[in-house]
Write a protein that binds this DNA or RNA. Sequence first.
DNA 1: TGGGAAATCTGTAACGTTACAGTTTTGCTT
DNA 2: AAGCAAAACTGTAACGTTACAGATTTCCCA
Lengths: 360, 360
Amino acid sequence: MSIQEEGNQRRGDGANPIRDAIAVFVSSGRRPTLKSIAEITGLGVTTVSRALKDAPDLAIGTKDKVQEVAHQIGYRPDRAGVRLRTGKTNVISLILNPHDEVTGYGTSVILGITQALQDTSMHLVVTPHFLSGDVMDPVRYVVETGAADGIIMSRTTPMDPRIRFLLEQRFPFVCHGRTELATPHPYVDFDNKAFAEIGAARLIERGRKRLGLIWPPNHLTFHHHMKRGFLNSLDGSGAEFINMPGLDLDTSPHAIREGLAALCKRGEAPDGLLCGGEISALAAMAGFRDAGLEIGRDVDVIAKQTSTIFEHIVPPIDTIAEDLTETGVQLGRALLRQLMNPDDETVMQSLQPPETRWRT
Amino acid sequence: MSIQEEGNQRRGDGANPIRDAIAVFVSSGRRPTLKSIAEITGLGVTTVSRALKDAPDLAIGTKDKVQEVAHQIGYRPDRAGVRLRTGKTNVISLILNPHDEVTGYGTSVILGITQALQDTSMHLVVTPHFLSGDVMDPVRYVVETGAADGIIMSRTTPMDPRIRFLLEQRFPFVCHGRTELATPHPYVDFDNKAFAEIGAARLIERGRKRLGLIWPPNHLTFHHHMKRGFLNSLDGSGAEFINMPGLDLDTSPHAIREGLAALCKRGEAPDGLLCGGEISALAAMAGFRDAGLEIGRDVDVIAKQTSTIFEHIVPPIDTIAEDLTETGVQLGRALLRQLMNPDDETVMQSLQPPETRWRT
DNA sequence: TGGGAAATCTGTAACGTTACAGTTTTGCTT
DNA sequence: AAGCAAAACTGTAACGTTACAGATTTCCCA
C-alpha cells in the first residue's frame, strides 16, 4: 500500500499522518536511521529493519510502507552500525604494489573493480604495500583487523605465502595471477603462456633466429608461464633462446636500455625480442637504437600492450594486448560472488585471452 | 611500571597475574578489545580507553601498564566502534575520474597519498565518478552518508559546484587544481601557467612562429592557467597563436592524431606544439609524421611529462615534468592537517613547480 | 583528627544495527 | 464461543567505543 493510497490525498489537511511525519522529519535535518522510520510509521525498529530486508513474516503492506518511507527520507544503512553488529565491513581491499606505478597498472584495474562494485554497497580501499615491508604485512593487517571482507592482490608467486595464509584463514580473496599450490583458489589471470607462444611464433615467422624475452622476475608465477609458452614456440623452430640475465620487468627502464645496448655491442643481443611490458619495450627499443640497430630491419620487438601508447609510436611494432580494465571487472565480480554466496564452494578461475595487434 | 617489574620475575610460578592473564587471553584466540585489556588489568573499560589516549587524570603507572598490555595482546581499536561512537570514519575518499585512466594519473597520485597516510589510522577509499553521472554525485554521496572524513578530487572548474558545496557544508577536502571562487580553499596544483610560459618560450627560442597548445577542455580551471602562460610568452614575440578547435586533452588520441594531420594538409598546423599530456603528445607527433613532417626539423613538440616514457621515445623531445607522486603526498598531507587540527583556519595551498627536461 | 581538595578511577548511556526469543493479533476450525 | 495455529509484529541485548557525571581513594593542611 503506498502512502498516497492510505488516507486522504488532498494536501494540507493533515489527514495523512505519515506524510506529515515525513515532512517534519525531513525539515529537522537529522540523518535518517531505522529509528526515524520507526517513529514515522509507528512501527518498531526491528520491524523496520526486517521490512527493509524483505523478511518473510511481515505483511506486504507493511514492507511497502516502510520501503516507501525509507525512500522518501533517503535512508541509507549506517555502515558503522552494520559493521559493528554483523562484522561485515562492506569493504574490499586492493593491495597495491609500488611496482604498479610505472605501468599505470593500477588505474585501469581500479576502474574495472569499481565498475564491478557499482550498484553494490561495497567500497574499495587501497592498502599499499611499501617496498620496505614484508609482503605479508598488508594481508595480515587486513585479516587481523578485519579491515575488509575480501582482498584483491597481484604479483603472485608459485608458493605464495599470502595465499596460503588466506586459504588457511578461509578469508575471501581473488588474485591477479596464479600459484602452484595444490589447493585451488580463485584467480583472474592473463594467459601469459599464450602471449609468449604467439609472440615467439610471430618473431620466428618473421625470420628471427635469436629470440629474447623480457619477462617478470623469476620469483613470480607468470615468469614461468611466459617461459613455457616462449620455449614451446622455439622448440624445433631452429631459433635460439637468448637469456638476458639481470634484465626483467622490474628492472628500471634505463637499466634495460643500457643492458640491451651493451648486449648489442658484444654481439650477444637477440634479433627478436618479446617484451612483457610497455615501458620496458620502449626502453629496449631505445637500447637497440643506441647500438645502431634499426627496429623492423635488424631486429623485431613485440610488446605486451596495456594502454594506447603503442598505437602512436614509431616505428609501429606488433603488440599483444591485455585488457586490464576487463581484468578489474572480473576480479571484482569473482570476489563479489564469493562474498554473496559464502557457502558456494565453486572456485572462480578465469584466463584472459591475449589480443594480437599486428601492425607490420 | 613494566609488567616485568611488577611482582615476581621467575617464570611459571603464577606470581604475575597480569602475565598469566595475557597468556590465557592470547591462547583464547579472541580479538583484543578494550574489554579484554580491562579484564587482564582489572581496570574499568573507561580507564583503559582513557589510558590509551594518554588522558591527564590517570596515574602514570596505570597508563604504562595498560599500554604495555595493549601492545602485548596486539590491541587495535575497532574502526566500527570508534566510528559509531565518534562519527569519525578515519577514511579519506579519493574521487577518481575515468579520464584519469588513460594517463595513469591515478596510480602515482594514489601511491603518493598512501605514502602520506602511512603511520596514520586513515584508510584511502576510491570513490569512482562514472561518466554517465553528475559530478556532484560522488561528493554528495560521501557527505550525505558520512562515508569519509575528507575528500580529495581533481579536474576543478572555475566555479566548481563541488567545492562550493563542500565549503558550504564545511566538509574537509583538498583538490588537485584551483577555482576562481571568492572563498579561499585548500588545493595542490601544478603551476600550469609557468609550464605553458616556459614551453612557449622554448618553442620561440627555437625559432617557431606558429604555436599551438593542446590544453585541457575549457571548462576546467587549468585550461585558463595554461592559456595565460602561453599567451604571456607569445606576447610581443612575433609568434602567432594557432587555435585548434576540437583538439584538447580529453580528445581521444586517435582524433588528435587525425585532427593534426588534417591541419597539416590544409597548411593550418602549428610548427611548434606544446602538449599538456603524454599520450596526447605521442598522438600529435604521430599526426605530424602522418602528414610527412619531421619532428625536430619541420616542427617542434614539447610535452608535459608524468612518467618515464618520454626518455625512450624517438626522436627525443623536450619535456616539462610534473611529479604526480609528490602531488599525492602533498594532497594527503594537506588533508591530514585539516583533519587533525579542525579549528586551525589556515588554508593549505601549494603550487608544484614544473621541471624542464631539455633534450635537444 | 577532621575536613576537604586533588588525584585517580568507574558505571552508565548512547551511537545504529540485527539475532533472538518472545508477544500480540488475526483467522479458522470445531 | 472456545481453542489453537498461523501471521504479524516487537523488546532486549549486544557488537566496541567514548562522553559524561559521578565515585572512591589519597594526601595535605589546619
